[in-house]
Design a protein around this nucleic acid. Structure first.
Length: 414
DNA sequence: CAGCAGGGGGCGA
DNA sequence: CGCCCCCTGCTGC
């Protein structure tokens, strides 16, 4: 062995790798997970996410489904966008103003190199109670270590570092309130409790693999459709996801109940109205949206924006990905609009909102929202009598009618 | 039969 | 114009 050992080195490996990664991300090729933030959907690669964040790594590990949709609450889309750039490109430029928020988010998500000390993968793996396969193979060829480094951003001293890194995210309370309750955190405690932990609200929804094909492969990262629930729930829908079948939502990752900060599910009371897909256009002042997201549940009737299942416009990719090198986030810059009429339908002058996952078209955002639930698996309408849950109000109603019917029948008038 | 999901009509902003 | 309610067709058990 030792005699004939040759070191083959791919000089441009790193560059090529990143470039390809960038393209893959841009085209959403091979993406196997989706991150939803403020109603925006970011198709991502588990590999990359896992590599750059232990937090995601754990989530994926505990989420057996092929294409989980991870809904992050309390995370601003801008931040997520920046973080994704950071993870995929190894660097990102951000405005000073956004820095604090970004770091906070990074901390919550345990993004290596930003919030979590970038450890040597090999050593890291040792530390882990259970070595995960995603950790890079321990052995590498002499020279290449630098190049073969997974995607960890370690080598990349983020541009941001200079100016920004200053704030040691060390103890920023992750995302204020709600985080505390997140069961999710539990998942990680095993590994690091020292670190912040509970990332913002996280919810993992299983997504059946059926559409991925169609949707995932070609989807442009965007899709919009916010879905929230219009549910005021006549039936007192109580959406506490908590009690729903846990299986539905990735094992433990999904903090069922905890999600509801104040007790009301974000997605629950929301009414779709509040977040018109078109709203995305960027009118969402970066600043204010988050509010919704963060606060949301507090009042109960207030924000529903917190939990949206929307799709991002494909332009997003274009913007983010293309602008890659140093993507700078300027308020609107990052987020183009959703695929709503104007964009999507420029195609057909008639208004149509389409689901970028299955390409189905709908005349109204509300219809699209409803439809999106079929993809997200969200079932905001719960039967107060039995564990039944459904994604459509009417279905719940008809279900309830059955209960009534059964009751009246069982005990005919007294 | 129950549940899911798309479509249509009515109504309010 | 958009949302809500309801109807209806399809699918799986």
């Amino acid at each position: 062995m030792e005699d004939g050992l040759l070191s083959l080195k791919w000089n441009n490996h790193k560059i090529t790798f990143f470039e390809i990664l960038r393209v893959l991300r841009e085209k959403a090729n091979y993406t196997d997970a989706t991150i939803a933030v403020e109603g925006k959907f970011y198709p991502v690669h588990k590999l990359v996410m896992s590599t750059c964040s232990e937090y995601f790594s754990e989530i994926f590990e505990r989420t057996p489904c092929k294409s989980p949709v991870i809904v992050l609450k309390d995370v601003r889309s801008q931040d997520m966008d920046a973080l994704l750039d950071y993870m995929y490109l190894g660097e990102v430029n951000v405005n000073q103003n956004d820095l604090a928020s970004l770091l906070k988010t990074a901390e919550c998500l345990r993004i290596k190199g930003l919030a979590v000390p970038d450890e040597d993968p090999t050593k890291f793996r040792k530390g882990q109670s259970d070595d995960r396969r995603e950790s890079p193979p321990p052995k590498r060829r002499r020279h290449e270590d630098s190049s073969s480094q997974p995607l960890s951003q370690r080598p990349v001293s983020p541009t941001i570092s200079a100016s920004s890194k200053t704030t040691p995210p060390s103890r920023t309370p992750p995302l204020q309130h709600q985080t505390s309750s997140l069961p999710v955190s539990q998942s990680q405690d095993s590994v690091h409790d020292s670190i912040v932990d509970p990332p913002p609200m996280v919810k993992v929804e299983m997504e059946e693999a059926d559409d991925p094909d169609d949707g995932y492969s070609r989807r442009d990262n965007s899709y919009d459709g916010g879905s929230v629930n219009e549910g005021d729930g006549d039936f007192g829908t109580e959406l506490s996801k908590s009690e729903h079948d846990p299986d539905n939502y990735g094992s433990g990752s999904f903090p069922g109940p905890s999600i509801q900060p104040g007790g009301d599910l974000p997605w629950d009371e929301g009414d779709s109205s509040s977040f018109p897909p078109e709203g995305f256009s960027g009118d969402l002042p970066a600043g204010q949206q988050p509010q919704g997201a963060l606060v949301g549940g507090g009042d109960g009737d207030g924000g529903l924006e917190d939990m949206l299942f929307l799709a991002l416009p494909s332009e997003l990719q274009a913007t983010a990905a293309v602008g890659v090198p140093p993507v700078t986030f300027h308020s609107t810059g990052g987020f183009p609009q959703s695929n709503h009429p104007s964009t999507a339908a420029s195609v057909a002058n008639k208004r149509c909102y389409w689901c970028h996952l299955c390409k189905r078209e709908f005349p109204f955002p509300s219809k699209l929202n409803e439809h999106m639930r079929t993809h997200t698996g969200e079932k905001p309408f719960a039967c107060p009598i039995c564990p039944f849950r459904t994604s459509l109000k009417w279905n719940l109603k008809s279900h309830m009618l059955r209960h009534q019917d059964a009751m009246t029948r069982s005990k005919p008038q007294t």
